[in-house]
């Protein structure tokens, strides 16, 4: 997926769409804690990391493996933004 002309809104929309495939019928807000909602198991976490890497053409690395970076759509957008924008 190209990152040309990528905006923060794009990042959030694509991430929300990906999460929505797993957790149907839930309108996830940008600042909602997906861990607190009980969404996350280890298989989902790995798929989420792979999605972010492929979709936005970035490498999630050792220092990025902090739960706070994946807690909300806003946090994930910040992580991606810090690497590509």
């Amino acid at each position: 997926m190209t990152t040309d002309s990528l905006t923060v809104d794009d990042i959030k929309a694509r991430t929300r769409a990906f999460i929505g495939k797993f957790f149907k019928n839930i309108e996830l807000q940008d600042d909602e804690d997906i861990f607190a909602l009980g969404f996350v198991n280890s298989l989902f976490a790995m798929q989420l990391v792979m999605f972010i890497e492929k979709e936005f053409g970035i490498a999630v690395e050792d220092q990025d493996l902090n739960i706070d970076n994946f807690r909300t759509i806003n946090a994930m957008a910040d992580l991606v933004k810090g690497k590509v924008l």
Partner: peptide, 12 residues
Amino acid sequence: GGLGFGLAAIGT
């Protein structure tokens, strides 16, 4: 990795 991501990302 960070605390708590051992299983979710690294182990998985």
